[in-house]
Amino acid sequence: MTQLSSISKLLQQSGAQFRIFDMGRRISKLTTDQFDKFEQGLIPYPTPYLHHAWLALMLWNPKHKQQNVVWFLKFPLDEQGFLVQAVRDDFLGRLMQNIQQMLDNNAISEANDALKDNPFSFTPDQEKMAMFHAIAAHITQQPASQFLAGAKAYFSGDLGWDQWSGVGYQGIADLVADLESQQQYLLNAIPNIPSEPLVALATCLEHSKPDHKIAEALLARLKKAIAEPEQASLVAALLRGLSNTHSDTLRSQALQLTLNSQYQGSAEVMAAIATRCNESLQHPELLHLFLERLAVSEAGQAGFSRILADLMFIPVMRILVLQQFRNENRSEALSKAVGAMFGKKFS
């Protein structure tokens, strides 16, 4: 069997249709051109998370779309965010060895076995897996799960807003995956549902692109939540749900409100902002406010350093954060936190 020189060539020669997803901060599509340039070492990974590229490679038979396979892969990145070529080569070598063994044993029927014992494979958490299944079914025009009907019944309001315990997370994910046609269910429910199903909905919405109507409904719930005690988890979830909306204005407003609220020091909220709202943090005034709040948050110095080490791994964010670190108007608290992270000689 011919040794392949790249994952891109493997996909192109498979004869299958395929799509590549980033699985790090949120589920999002990667173009084949982006992936090919990343694999060749021409560009850094566009959306690194915890110093890794988290990928899903989905392949399906164009004539029988229900015949598909998904490989979840996690590759370490170098200090500049590029793929380590030796890691890619190691992955391909292990993959080809497993495929050859499957051919020798006439066991090619299970394509997922090609990743057996591969150190670069991973399993997404249950919430992200549910959303991925929903997205994959929508792309390949397969039926949604059996849980969709129950989710529709609940989000329509017919069951009563307190009857959420029987609603499956997969059903909510199926609703969100088909957001364009199912939007009215969400608009009907967001103002009314209790915190628990709202958290589930918001954590699904971070993988979609809600329009301004859904974003406005989420923002109204956020305003209510930040005025109440002990709602940090809900506030964090709502920020995640708003993080990928088309409206930059609404996203920025949500961050401003939160960072000036009683939850400005919540470690959970700070982590949600850093990991999901990095596009909004490209606004200098929001980034400055976030850094000032993070420096005195309950995350402490360890949390400050961990959160920023991950955020600064995104090339554009590294430049912007360093600019804020050198801002003459930074507080003493931020200066101390920066000094503890980089050393007192940082300037």
Rank of each mutant, 00 (worst) to 15 (best):
P191V: 10
Q184N: 12
A202Q: 05
S195I: 11
A200V: 03
A189W: 00
A189H: 01
P194Q: 00
I172Q: 09
G171V: 07
L175A: 13
A173Q: 05
S195H: 10
I190G: 08
Y185R: 07
N192A: 13
I172K: 07
A202H: 09
L179R: 04
I172E: 01
E196C: 08
N192K: 15
E196R: 10
V176S: 04
A200L: 15
L175C: 11
A189D: 02
N192T: 11
Q182D: 11
E196S: 11
P197C: 09
V199E: 12
S195V: 14
P191E: 03
A177S: 15
I190R: 14
Q170C: 14
I172Y: 09
I190V: 15
D178F: 10
L198Q: 08
A202G: 08
I193V: 15
Q183P: 11
P197V: 07
L198R: 11
V176H: 00
N192W: 14
V199Q: 13
A189I: 02
N188A: 14
A173E: 06
E196G: 02
E180Q: 11
A177Y: 01
Q183N: 09
I190M: 09
I193E: 10
P197M: 09
Q184E: 11
Q182N: 15
L179H: 06
D174R: 12
L179N: 01
D174E: 13
N188G: 03
A177T: 02
S181I: 15
G171P: 06
L198N: 07
S195Q: 13
A202Y: 05
E196Y: 07
A200F: 12
